[in-house]
């Protein structure tokens, strides 16, 4: 009696759920055009990071263009190398997108992986971030030059917040180092956020950082910006001088900054590339998205294909050689046939 009741109950549930599943499947029946089913978007950094936020901000503007959902998944690890390889190894049918930052362009010289963006088609490079050099108001420096002079006067005493090799502070540090003696104590953190927290608490003395994460702290006066790593002033930080004011030789590195983009395997069919490029271009042109990018302290780019490739190549050439000259690479850029800028 009891057993038969159980069987009946189970049967009833089966009928209901299989009905629901059936409806779901028929709704997803394939047709001929791309995309016919939901697309998977792999984000190469963890939840809550800048790449994650940028990816989740653009996607809702793109989905209506494709009439499908883009399911986003964070797959961090190996500084983005794992995601990059994962997407690269997937069937090049345009159903797996890579939401990435600048990192793969450095994986070769850092000895992490041989796959960089030259293996991908750039659907859209959405934006590039601006870097600023910030310090704590308790410190005596009010300009980058004062800081640099102090570094020269007191070698190996001043602590610089960093985020590990290839990270933004590291590269900006290498740029500063190209100006001559630059002996600081780099203290690496897991990202911009923890580094800023340490700067606020006085555990490091200065920090090259993405503008996004520091903007509000600068505005509130809890941190002061010494220079913007750009060749002209930016509208959000009107009184802060561009780095080229004191160091004109920096022009050769600029524009430089982290960037965020969407990529697919180069082997994807043409119509897939075109559909995606159009959809993302449309999404990234949305005024609301542009406002978000500006609020985020970044510069909208919205470039794809050839134009994006050129940008990516220049970025790679500048950065890898900078790191190589600073002695921070495991393999020379020449191995990857990266030309010197």
């Amino acid at each position: 009696m009891k057993k038969s009741k159980l069987v009946l109950w189970l049967l009833l549930t089966s009928v209901t759920v299989s009905g629901a599943a059936f409806v779901h499947f028929t709704l997803e029946s394939p047709t001929t055009n791309y995309p016919t089913r939901n697309i998977q978007g792999i984000i190469m950094w963890g939840a809550g990071g800048a790449t994650d936020t940028m990816s989740r901000a653009i996607t809702p503007y793109v989905e209506p263009q494709l009439n499908k959902e883009i399911v986003l998944i964070n797959r961090s690890g190996g500084a983005g190398a794992i995601s990059t390889k994962y997407v690269h190894n997937k069937k090049p049918d345009g159903y797996t997108l890579l939401y990435g930052a600048e990192n793969p362009q450095l994986h070769g010289v850092l000895g992490l992986s041989d796959i960089d963006y030259s293996e991908f088609y750039a659907v859209n490079v959405l934006a590039r971030g601006i870097s600023v050099i910030v310090s704590h108001p308790d410190q005596p420096w009010r300009s980058l030059k004062e800081l640099m002079d102090d570094v020269k006067a007191r070698p190996k005493e001043i602590k610089m917040g960093s985020t590990g090799p290839g990270g933004l502070p590291y590269v900006v540090g290498a740029m500063l180092g190209s100006e001559g003696a630059f002996e600081v104590i780099p203290v690496p953190f897991d990202g911009d956020g923890p580094a800023i927290t340490a700067l606020l608490g006085g555990h490091v003395d200065f920090l090259p950082s993405g503008f996004t994460a520091t903007a509000e702290h600068i505005r509130s006066g809890r941190l002061i910006a010494l220079a913007v790593v750009n060749d002209k002033e930016i509208s959000l930080l009107p009184s802060v001088p561009p780095i080229t004011l004191d160091y004109p030789s920096f022009k050769k590195f600029l524009p430089w900054g982290p960037f965020y983009g969407v990529f697919i395997n180069k082997q994807a069919p043409r119509n897939v590339k075109e559909t995606l490029t159009k959809a993302f271009h449309h999404g990234a042109s949305n005024p609301q998205f542009i406002r978000f990018v500006n609020d985020f302290g970044a510069i909208p780019m919205n470039i794809s294909g050839q134009e994006a490739d050129e940008f990516l190549r220049k970025w790679q050439s500048v950065t890898t050689w900078l790191l190589h000259d600073a002695g921070a690479t495991k393999k020379s850029p020449t191995i990857f046939e990266i030309p010197r800028p």
Partner: peptide, 28 residues
Amino acid sequence: TLGMPGDAVTAVMIGALFIHGIQPGPLM
């Protein structure tokens, strides 16, 4: 109070604030 994440979840929420046009920071 600072616009800094206390853990992974609040890190994502800070991203959400950005997307909704609020600047997370000490002035919030």
